[in-house]
Design a protein around this nucleic acid. Structure first.
Lengths: 195, 195
DNA sequence: CTGGACATTGTCCTGTGGTACAGGGGAGGA
DNA sequence: TCCTCCCCTGTACCACAGGACAATGTCCAG
């Protein structure tokens, strides 16, 4: 995991390096090569006051980009995330907080501060569509429970412990589930339940 | 910062303690006192299959609550977050990932996984970084090919035939993939690649 | 009362998954 | 030339997955 910092301001650079020493530093976006897969970008280097979704989408192709914005506003944050950024934060956020943000992004997640999250949750739609659960129809309650566990990646021992039954019972239910759903093993079961 | 784990399942407890040793353990919600300000709760201990927003709102008053859910579904995650939870994750998430979640929450932020975030950003024509590609980064070309096959539900024999290599070579690549991606078997690999 | 469905459990078996230890060849960079 | 990494492969081993065959108990509808 190697971070690239796109930052021109010396004070900001120092602050970021406090969070992640050893990062590669460039002061202009044009200097970013394809090898820069994990990037922290000072939004002020984007050139315009506004965040251009197309520009951000272009920049975020084939890389994880965290946008550090001196103008820390919800609208800009939403635009950044909606345009493919893997995180949005204040440019001058505390080094400890910045390190955590980069760690979260490095592990594959997307970083959202609580303000943005609150904003997003505020627009929650009550009538959310239900996920596909057609797989449940032919199964008994116990079979469903065992199937869910298996599809979540648990081994038979763990399922037995979780549901307070023996491994033999787990196998019995799984065999029945496999037959009813027409899959041959738990990998295919997991794929089926996630479809 | 002192975490309280509300968990009855021994295997789950051990897993959580791997993430945060020294946490206070209780096996029933009734045992939670007011001193428990940072709580990780096994959702199965809520008593009903459904997540009750009123109940969650009650539980999250004056405390940071992360809900660890064996039934890891977007709807339930949205309900949890909208009801005041500071985080929603899979009950059996990897200890390293769990530690990171708890660190994020401990620092005052809210934890949201990428699936939930994608849902929340849905109304904004979300263009989150492609989740299906992040797993490629640490893998060699051949490892990627083998991983894709395994994640599609193929057994080792079938993968060997398709890629024109021996079963032993398939196993070698898979073991390397498991180590690099931090998964323990091909079910978890499949889930990871589909995340 | 009977039969069927569901849930649970036993022993036994085979094949697979996954790891350990070992090794060779090719390509590319220092 | 040497070293490292990738790709490939061998034997061996153990644990697990999954199936076969068998059985019991509970509940409920007919």
């Amino acid at each position: 995991m190697h971070w690239w910092f796109v930052v021109a301001d010396e004070a900001l650079k120092a602050r970021w390096l406090e969070a992640v020493s050893g990062a590669e530093i460039v002061s202009d976006l044009a200097e970013l090569g394809e090898e820069a897969r994990w990037v922290l970008l000072d939004a002020s280097l984007l050139g315009t006051g506004l965040l251009m979704p197309e520009r951000l989408a272009e920049l975020t192709q084939n890389r994880r980009l965290v946008l550090a914005d001196p103008l820390h506003q919800q609208e800009r944050g939403l635009t950044a995330l909606a345009s493919g950024c893997a995180g949005y934060c204040h440019a001058y956020t505390e080094p400890d907080a910045l390190r955590q943000i980069l760690e979260v992004v490095a592990s594959g997640e997307v970083w959202v501060g609580r303000e943005l999250l609150s904003r997003l949750l505020g627009g929650l739609n009550a009538n959310l569509p239900a996920p596909s659960e057609a797989w449940r129809e032919p199964l008994t309650e116990r079979e469903q429970a065992v199937a869910e566990c298996a599809a979540q990646g648990l081994v038979n021992k763990e399922i037995a412990s979780r549901l307070d039954i023996t491994v033999r019972t787990v196998k019995a239910h799984l065999s029945s589930v496999f037959a009813k759903l027409g899959v041959r093993d738990r990998v295919q079961l997991a794929l089926r339940l996630r479809a």
